[in-house]
Design a protein around this nucleic acid. Sequence first.
RNA 1: GCGGGUAUGGCGAAAUAGGUAGACGCAAGGGACUUAAAAUCCCUCGGGGGCGACUCCGUGCCGGUUCGAGUCCGGCUACCCGCACCA
Length: 804
Amino acid sequence: MAAVYDHHSVEPKWQKVWDDEKAFAATNDFSKPKYYALVEFPYPSGQGLHVGHPRPYTALDIVSRKRRMQGYNVLFPMGWDAFGLPTENYAIKNKIHPKIVTKNNVARFKEQLHSIGYSFDWDREVNTTDPGYYHWTQWIFLKLFNAGLAYKTQMPINWCTSCKVGLANEEVVNGVCERCGAPVVRKMQSQWMLKITEYADKLLEGLDSVDYIERVKTQQRNWIGRSTGAEVDFKLTGTDDKLTVYTTRPDTLFGATYMVMSPEHPYIEKYKDRITNYDEVVKYREEASRKSDFERTELAKDKTGVCLNGLTAIDPVNDKEIPIWISDYVLMSYGTGAIMAVPAHDERDWEFAKKFNLPIIEVVAGSDKPVTEQVYTDVAEGKLVNSGFLDGLSVAEAKKKITEFLEEKGIGHAKTNYKLRDWVFSRQRYWGEPIPIIHCEKCGYVPLKEEDLPLELPEVESYMPGDNGESPLAAMDSWVNVTCPCCGGPAKRETDTMPQWAGSSWYFLRYIDPTNDKELASQEALKYWLPVDWYNGGMEHTTLHLLYSRFWHRFLYDQGIVPTKEPYAKRTSHGMILGSNGEKMSKSRGNVVNPDDIIEEYGADTLRTYEMFIGAFDQAANWSMEGVQGCRRFLDRVWKLQAIVTDGDEYSKDLEVKIHQTIRKVSGDFETLKYNTGIAALMALINDFYKAGSITKADLKTFILLLNPVAPHITEEIWANEGFEGRVFQAKWPEYEEAKCVEDTVTIAVQVLGKLRGTFEEDRNASKETMIARAKETVASKIEGKEIVKEIYVPGKLVNFVVK
RNA sequence: GCGGGUAUGGCGAAAUAGGUAGACGCAAGGGACUUAAAAUCCCUCGGGGGCGACUCCGUGCCGGUUCGAGUCCGGCUACCCGCACCA
């Protein structure tokens, strides 16, 4: 044995052994119990791996390695989510094909991941930009199209007035273009959409059947945002038209004092002759078009709006004529694009009414202050007033009664609404999956035939979007102009590509059968491997990627393509790794840590141990070089255990209880995301080993097995040095006996009036009477001359005396 | 703005189900070894007071429930994440 642990020679050595022996390949032996562990596949950026990546990867590598030791057939795959904007922008700037850029980045990422010693099954690597992969992404799109879930509509995009290109939200900084600084406006564009809203209820209900951490479920539920209310028709004065609003509070209908329409509402165009201040309205609408939905609702505090002079509405319950305003906080994309405003009982309406001096009428009583001074939104306590036939009812009763009334009169009906919006699926970009649709003047949108897939990305001369905001593909006349598969007439290909979310919405299915060129994956393999048993990923993917992939999966289930309703049985999330200054790591802040440097100086096992020890797994943590060093010191102490090991195939007597406790602790902590305390327990045990002076081979063996999932290289090397049989990755996970986890004596805390006044040691089986008697001795001076009113005894823990 | 989180020593953090706050690690101070340093090993380490047995205070802030609150309840404050074309 070498005197010191030399990671430079040991780590690559074992990585090669694992590769050569195909140590971590999932087998197709479907008779074995399976375990599918999944981490989010990375976007192979030009910067290479970031120290944030190894955190979730190491966590599930630990789980995977432990599962294999527990006898499971484990699938733990890795791949590349390689389409995307930064690669395309790099390609534009440097005139290099994105394919080449991607290939280089992937090679770098793969080498980096390899050097950390992950137990990925590299035989199942997938890449979303590979035509053999996106063949099936396009195939799923065709299924969606044929099921009526893909449609085209006019949607606004961010448009740079100077570059003449569509921009991603991220490329818009404070309303101007990130590259040139010119103002960005919203421009209408015909876009492909996916009807995720049709799956809103299924996605909501599915959450009840899966084991996701609670905040992920809550965030998805709120994102879907189901609310039940009513749609109500208000007559437009002097016309045959009605203005339909959506409200969650139909009970407050008698308190509506004005209406607000979205600035984009079609009635504005329709009745522009009636609106006497139309110029002002148009100006306001232009200003609103410069703001994103986010800004429009963000600026809600300082309400803006314009009253439509000449256009009013009639409240259907009391025939009152009320004014109509337009304001940007009302969005065309939610509800009906118009609201009735009840300022007494809605915060935004109240602020708006105060600003523009509009009447505020109380219709729910129960507030401490008059509603002209403070908005009253309590729905549990209040009773209806000033509301005709609703007076005296509770809010819930009134909701029911008014909805029945509206339905009876034919002026409204109960309505469920969702905050969730349909998924904008078009990008005017090159580096994405081509949308396999042909547009024919005669036949409309015609899908490609399945046998014509994959529709490969053609080579183009420039990756720059066209002047009118079209994708670079639009310039490829020979590719664009085709004959209609339906009528044989002249037709044009769709030139938009899919968003990056497309490839990542189903990648976990492809790992199951990655080389199948007949189907997306074989039914037999899907039945065996699904669902994913444990999926860990960033909290930032909760509402988009996670929801999108659940949507696709549920759709595929409805089509009979996959055997489970839900793709992921369990979902957990990790916290971000921040720079040592507590800020997000970024080049500009100069606080970026490259994992390669850590591996070079301290080794992969140190990196892995530190990333797991850094803090609570689900919380953000600051990087610390000193902390890295501490973990390396721990591994050095592990290495040096070889110097104090003596023969013996049983646990040392003095260490036996500690070892059993540690097996229990580590086995549990590795399952519950508490990697930091699991490692702390191993550190505590090694401290006990050194205190004992010498340990048996059995002591060492168990310690090595427990540490192996975290630090696989050093443990494999010690295992070989000590002549233990086979490889650690083939060994069995250690077991503990509950009976051997308990000490003979317990320490009892003694409190007087809840304050700690002393402790004593006693046989753990001693009676309650003995414990209380010993407790009285322990705090004799504190309770002397006082009356004991109550004795509280918590077995094995404490005694508390309540005295007078 | 809306939705979701988080707050404990000098620092990263622990604390099954309301029961000894600060495990484990880092930094710091002292000691051993060394010509010296590094490495390693040993000891101390929340704050105040006391020579001392001890004692008071302490888990973001204000209040409550309880024999007992970091943990439960009500009300705040600060910070972090997401907000649909970054991934």
